[in-house]
Design a protein around this nucleic acid. Structure first.
Length: 431
RNA sequence: UCCGGGUUAGGGUAGUGGUCAUCCUUCAGCCUUGUGGAGGCUGAGACGCGGGUUCGAUUCUCGCACCCGGACCCA
């Protein structure tokens, strides 16, 4: 017996069919917004990640040297890869570029609820538009995908924030503030004690009074208060940008799912503008279900032309927790249209019948284990066959096959030459 | 890397320092070479791994692995 690796999962048919439903719903929504599917490698040069984030992240990667002496890593996320792709094609791509893909990613980290070492995400990104419409379209995609899966505004909310509002406010203080550290502190603020939060802000350079003032500002309902406080063009522009994004979500029909929450910051460094996280409003899924936001500087930092970008990446593991909690996780029963039951040496006819039914698009099984009549009936029952077609020696002697409806147990005989006939012949059509 | 709780057939469980480890379910075959859901019979199938204590360990003990939660981290 061999063990499955920790943090990696097998998906048996029952669960795989549920996952398929979810993936199809996400991708179907993306396609309807005109996002185009891209395919991407499972391995990248490790520098793609270390150049941006430092050597220490190698500890969290599946990284190794390949036989050609290249340092490679199994992709821990998609953004660097699609950014690389955009840089590589440059001006050959007409803007805006709208891409999606569903894929596994790998991170060598501790397994927890909703977190595995191999995990699946559907990434959706728009490159080449700095307009608020692009941010709003990403939010609209995400909201439509979730409602398409059966969730409602009672189940989830998008907490929308803005990196430049946070950065602009911090710069407005007298103190010399480490903006990056302060934003990380904000990102943690809801998970830690207020005192610890203020300590972190203090470490970032704010005095205790300033930290208190900053915290109060983030809690405001009136964004104009922020503009008044800072008195800078930067904050004014950032606030009006956030407002424009929200206005666009109104027109796109998803404003109701969005809540302004400046305490939401996202841990990632590369975000620049509007950012958001999806939360379970019932609070059962403790961490953010997924997040997204604007990252206008990444393409340029990879050596491309300045290219604004915004994206979101629903992770399937946390999403499935939310769907199960909300009672809308798709549970599909195994379905089979026909079981073609063979008795005696009737394979030529049974095979022909099965083939004809499959050509009509039906799901058809037949005996491949040379089992007894009773065992075949039992198997047909276990795969939820709707109809059993009995191709037996006795039937064929009369030039017939027997068609049995499994739900009622009723059965009838039909001339073998006339079966299957119509597209999806059932007992009712034939009796 | 750290903290807490776990691990007995495919799934769910009972139990014990000592003869064949309990029961339910599942799976396969048969009763019934032509009728599934019911019943009966037969069979398959487990003490996570390693060390220690002991005459003897699935049981006590230590370590490890894995699972479930959480901390850290979340590019």
């Amino acid at each position: 017996m061999y063990d499955r690796l920790k943090g990696f999962r097998d998906f048996y048919p029952e669960e795989m069919s549920s996952r398929r439903e979810v993936t199809d719903a996400l991708e179907g929504t993306a396609r309807r917004y005109g996002f185009r599917e891209v395919g991407t490698p499972a391995l990248e040069r490790v520098e793609l990640y270390t150049d941006k984030s430092g050597e220490e992240i190698v500890d969290e990667l599946y990284a190794f040297e390949d036989r050609g002496g290249r340092d490679v890593a199994m992709t821990p996320e998609l953004t660097p890869t699609v950014a690389r792709m955009v840089v590589e094609k440059g001006q050959a791509l007409s803007k805006p570029i709208k891409w999606f893909s569903t894929r596994p990613f790998w991170r060598y980290e501790q397994v927890q609820q909703g977190r595995f070492r191999e995990f699946y995400q559907t990434n959706v990104d728009i490159f080449g538009s700095s307009e608020p419409d692009a941010d709003a379209e990403v939010l609209a995609f995400a909201a439509d995908a979730l409602t398409g899966l059966g969730l409602t505004g009672d189940d989830f909310e998008f907490r929308v924030s803005h990196r430049d509002i946070l950065g602009g406010l911090l710069s407005a203080f007298e103190a010399d503030v480490d903006v990056r550290a302060a934003i990380r502190a904000v990102d943690k603020s809801e998970k830690i004690e207020p005192a610890a939060y203020y300590d972190l802000l203090a470490e970032a350079g704010l005095s205790y009074d300033e930290a208190e003032r900053f915290d109060a500002l983030l809690a405001t309902d009136d964004l104009s208060e922020l503009v008044d406080f800072a008195g800078t063009d930067r904050v004014e522009a950032a606030v009006s940008n956030l407002q424009a994004v929200l206005d666009a979500t109104e027109d796109f029909g998803v404003r109701e799912y969005c809540t302004v929450s400046l305490e939401t910051a996202r841990g990632l460094d590369y975000y620049t503008g509007a950012v958001f996280e999806c939360f379970d409003t019932q609070g059962d899924v403790s961490r953010a279900v997924f997040g997204g936001g604007r990252y206008d500087d990444l393409i340029e930092s990879y050596g491309g032309q300045p290219t604004p970008a915004v994206g979101v990446a629903p992770g399937h593991a946390t999403l499935s927790l939310l769907l199960r909690r909300a009672g809308v996780w798709p549970e599909e029963e195994l379905a089979t249209d026909y079981y073609v039951l063979r008795v005696g040496d009737t394979r030529p006819t049974a095979a022909r019948v099965a083939r004809d039914l499959r050509e009509r698009g039906n799901v058809v099984e037949t005996d491949v284990a040379d089992r007894s009549f009773g065992a075949q009936m039992s198997y047909a029952d276990s795969i939820n066959a709707e109809t059993v077609v009995i191709v037996g020696e006795r039937d064929l002697e009369n030039g017939e096959v027997t068609v049995k409806d499994m739900a009622s147990g009723d059965q009838t005989t039909v001339p073998v030459d006339e079966f299957p006939g119509s597209d999806h012949p059932t007992y009712d059509d034939l009796s």
